[in-house]
């Protein structure tokens, strides 16, 4: 092996080692950050298509009526009341492969004439009626996730 080639090879080896060291230092820094060296909180969220890639339709009930999905078929907002297959030990609901649902029509909501407080009260009444049927309200995020991989919610117009 001539001198130039040996130099080149050593040079490559040195730069590979340097890259490795830099990568290791980066990893170390990241570990420090994640471990909270300064006791600072760290939160990272996976925003990929993971939600859509779920193989089961498991969800929790929407946290509040303001997050629930309402459908307007031309006669005012109606609560999308999803009928779960079963409630899991974790408290989540399994909606099954093709979630069943019903639209709650009672009491009817008139967006043009009802004031906001009345609309909210009526939405809560619709929720009570949904619960009486054994159903749950779901959030927009859960709806989008489930609608993307089943045809259960096709042709619904979301308010």
């Amino acid at each position: 092996m001539d001198k130039d080639k040996l130099f080149e090879q050593n040079n490559h080896s040195a730069s590979a080692q340097k890259m490795c060291q830099q990568s290791s230092a980066k990893k170390q820094k990241r570990r420090m950050l994640l471990k909270g060296g300064a006791a600072l909180p760290v939160v990272m969220t996976l925003y990929s298509g993971a939600a859509l890639a779920r193989t089961s339709n498991i969800t929790g009930e929407a946290a509040s009526i303001t997050e629930a999905v309402f459908v307007n078929m031309g006669n005012g907002p109606q609560l999308l009341c999803v009928l779960p297959k079963e409630k899991l030990d974790s408290g989540a609901y399994d909606l099954g492969d093709t979630p069943g649902y019903t639209l709650i029509t009672n009491p009817p909501i008139h967006p043009l004439t009802d004031d906001p407080a009345t609309i909210l009260a009526k939405k809560n009444e619709q929720l009570e009626n949904c619960h009486m049927l054994g159903g749950i309200m779901i959030s927009g995020a859960a709806f989008t996730s489930i609608a993307a991989k089943t045809s259960a919610f096709d042709n619904l117009m979301i308010l």
Partner: peptide, 24 residues
């Protein structure tokens, strides 16, 4: 090992927390 993965079923999101975030 004092780092946490947290799956939030109602949004379908997965979060990573360190110990301080989990404590909060």
């Amino acid at each position: 090992n004092d780092e946490y993965t947290v799956f939030q079923p109602d949004s379908g999101k997965t979060h990573f927390f360190n110990q301080t975030s989990m404590d909060m």
